[in-house]
């Protein structure tokens, strides 16, 4: 702390903190928590499912905001600024979620039940490549991905309110053209569920190995960029 304050005291321009009195926003935060709980209770009277989704949404919002977690930065920073700490964090999230998902899916399968969430194993087609590519461009320009845009709307960014609006319009546009894409592009692709190819243990091994290798590569890359 002592060393830190020395830097601020050595500056010649006056810090804005001595000019502006700080307001205390905690009471508004507490009021918001009460409103959130009230909405949760209201949704609970309609259906348990709505209340559950609301709770999950609140949790994701808090985690994303507190962690300043940004999928956009994880993809953009390696190229743009040379930093990979968010990239590595995202890889950690992938690894943990992979294990949890595999456990749940394997459990269902071994009980002879249909596995949950298999609609998220999407066909691999040129549509995936094209869509993800323009999504990648868009998120860097707009300064936020899907989750990041919502989180930043909550943080008070007018720019992200605008990009959310056009995200919705773009989604509608995409939904409008979806029939053509489905017929001519997506239907030519195939769903590939890795356990079908490598078996359960093999799929987990392959995927976790790739994640570890990417993690190491990201760390080495950052060191190399810094040395330049």
């Amino acid at each position: 702390m002592a060393e830190q304050s020395s830097l601020a005291s050595r500056r010649s321009s006056s810090s804005a903190s001595r000019r502006k009195p700080k307001k205390n926003q905690i009471p508004i935060g507490v009021a918001l928590v009460i409103i959130i709980v009230a909405i949760g209770i209201y949704l609970g009277t309609k259906s348990g499912q709505l209340a559950l989704y609301w709770t999950l949404g609140i949790s994701f919002g808090v985690i994303l905001q507190k962690g300043r977690f940004c999928f956009t930065a994880s993809m953009r920073d390696p190229y743009l600024t040379g930093g990979t700490s968010l990239t590595r964090a995202v890889l950690i999230a992938f690894a943990i979620a992979t294990i949890g998902f595999a456990a749940i899916k394997y459990g269902y399968q071994s009980m002879g039940l249909p596995m949950p969430g298999m609609s998220y194993v999407a066909p691999v087609s040129l549509g995936t490549v094209f869509g993800a590519f323009i999504f990648g461009i868009g998120m860097v320009i707009a300064g936020g991905c899907a989750s990041g845009t919502l989180m930043r709307v909550g943080e008070g960014f007018h720019m992200q309110i605008l990009s959310l609006l056009f995200f919705i319009i773009g989604s509608l546009w995409g939904a409008h053209d979806f029939g053509w894409w489905k017929l001519n592009v997506i239907s030519k692709g195939k769903e590939v569920f890795l356990p079908d190819v490598f078996g359960w243990a093999g799929a987990l091994f392959v995927q976790l190995t790739i994640i570890v290798l990417l993690y190491i590569a990201a760390e080495k890359y950052e060191e190399k960029r810094k040395a330049q």
Partner: peptide
Amino acid sequence: AAIIGGLMMGYGARIAA
């Protein structure tokens, strides 16, 4: 940037599922 970026994300996300 917000308009172009938003549109590209929206369209891309629908095509890429």
